[in-house]
């Protein structure tokens, strides 16, 4: 599997997708810096905490920017083999289709994790700039490192909720359909993220789970987790079944 992962990473050499995705991962931290500056300008007496900046980032990352970036990466990873006509070079090699797909999913997870870490570091960096000029309460590496496990969980949730888009990319052999679908999903997330039903909608359930707000919606935590696992599982299953049976003409 490590060999497959290495092959997938080799395929990304000279690819502009890496730099574009990094820019996407920096978007939320940068917007949070702008928000900090505005808050400071309007209410200079208000304390801005690094912990609070990280907490705010979860919502934006999971339902907006990083989610969209993750869908774009997934679409790129899975549809490029069709676009560049490379399946007919890869599939006659002595390797099963299941392993090829597993290698791609693993690459997607690692890429998502890398981008989450970029976002984590960017928040620390931008907040550091703010701290140097205006001062930020509890600005410390310790606070930042406390968020690493949560960000890891965030990556798992983001990866899990991306699998249906992988299937769409695989099925439609392109970028457009998964990106349009993800835009619709993001609209749904925006509408439900502060509603009780948000606990039942996988893309907002993940945010509520991370923020510990599921119980406040009246729905049990296990239900949100079950829905997340179900949607993710459906995405995986459809992708594997479709690819295993697909004829590449």
């Amino acid at each position: 599997m490590l060999n497959l992962l290495y092959c997938e990473l080799l395929k990304l050499r000279h690819s502009k997708m890496i730099s574009i995705s990094v820019l996407g991962a920096v978007a939320v931290p940068f917007m949070l810096l702008v928000e900090e500056l505005q808050t400071h300008a309007e209410h200079p007496e208000e304390k801005i905490l690094l912990d609070q900046v990280y907490a705010n980032s979860v919502l934006y990352m999971l339902i907006l920017a990083n989610m969209m970036v993750s869908v774009a990466i997934a679409s790129y990873l899975f549809s490029r083999e069709y676009a560049e006509n490379t399946w007919k070079t890869i599939l006659p090699l002595p390797i099963s289709r299941t392993k090829v797909l597993a290698g791609k999913f693993l690459t997607l997870f690692i890429w998502d994790l890398g981008l989450t870490l970029v976002s984590w570091f960017s928040i620390l960096f931008f907040s550091g700039i703010f701290h140097a000029i205006f001062g930020m309460s509890e600005y410390s590496l310790f606070t930042a490192f406390r968020w690493i496990p949560k960000y890891f969980l965030l990556t798992i949730f983001m990866f899990a909720t991306t699998t249906p888009f992988v299937y769409i990319a695989q099925k439609t052999k392109g970028f457009v359909a998964p990106m349009i679908t993800s835009a619709v999903i993001v609209l749904g997330s925006a509408a439900l993220c502060n509603q009780e039903w948000g606990a039942l909608y996988p893309w907002t359930a993940s945010v509520l789970l991370l923020q510990g707000r599921v119980e406040g919606t009246g729905y049990p935590v296990w239900l949100s987790i079950t829905i997340l696992i179900f949607v993710s599982g459906i995405g995986f299953m459809l992708t594997f079944l479709h690819f295993k049976k697909e004829d590449l003409k």
Binding site: C7, L10, K11, R13, H14, S15, R80, E84, N85, T86, W87, K88, T89, I90, L93
Partner: peptide, 16 residues
């Protein structure tokens, strides 16, 4: 034949 467009010939073969 299909190969990865962002890579050189040698890089493509190295992946295979």
């Amino acid at each position: 034949p299909g190969f990865y467009t962002n890579l050189t010939g040698q890089e493509n073969l190295e992946i295979l």
